[in-house]
Nucleic acid binder design. Structure first.
Lengths: 116, 116
DNA sequence: GCCCTCGCGCAACCTTTAGTTGCATGTTGC
DNA sequence: GCAACATGCAACTAAAGGTTGCGCGAGGGC
């Protein structure tokens, strides 16, 4: 139920390299494909493709400065993504708690009838 | 920083079909590849592969009953996964707040110096 | 007991995506 | 003007999600 139209956001942040890139952009501030690739175990071209993906879903946006292209996180969009994450998390959490409650109820019933 | 060894868990729940499958197993209780495929837009074989992935990372476990194979969610492992999710979420959230605070401080400085 | 059905697993194949290498283009600084 | 550097584009490989087709074992009528 929780996942529907926002699969794009999920698949964007689902990739480990892209998650690390977002981490880097948040902790070190705006960066380029080259600067990010120096801190990642992949080539600049791979980073460039990921930047394109993140840009397309709006999680980051670029600004050209001469021969460099500076990318930075779009705060509002990332906040939306985080909201999606915690939504799914809390949905599952709620269901787990419900299941546990039912299991305990059954356990109680079983224990009560054991003396028959 | 947040993502390291647990990339397996992430990639397991990163797939939209697998997320839906977990949803179904939680809401409808244990199910088979066939029963799940009836409620999903993919074939039984695709579902079967996803079940194998989820089984491998321990998010679900199977139980053979005659010719059927019943899968159900491993509550502890899913709880762990949910924890990972919210960990990343709150990390990003914290960084976003920090950035916002800094941005506001800069804005204040700029506004103060505007009268020069 | 026999057969028909159903659920499953295996194998071959297609498509997308993350990754690579190689090359051409545009900027900067001296 | 030229060397150095950041980028973009193209071709290729590898892995993953998906499909179809097949063969097999377990169950349920008759």
């Amino acid at each position: 139920m929780s996942t529907a139209i926002d699969d794009e956001l999920w698949s964007a942040i689902g990739d480990p390299t892209r998650r690390t890139m977002i981490d880097l952009l948040l902790s070190d501030g705006p960066g380029t494909a080259t600067s990010l690739s120096r801190r990642l175990p992949v080539t600049r071209q791979a980073v460039s493709k990921h930047l394109a993906v993140l840009d397309r879903v709006g999680l980051i946006h670029a600004e050209s400065a001469g021969r460099e292209r500076h990318y930075q996180v779009d705060e509002a969009q990332l906040a939306r993504a985080v909201a999606q994450l915690s939504a799914v998390g809390s949905t599952w959490d709620a269901r787990l708690r419900r299941i546990k409650r039912i299991a305990e109820a059954i356990e109680r019933t079983r224990t009560n009838n054991e003396g028959e």
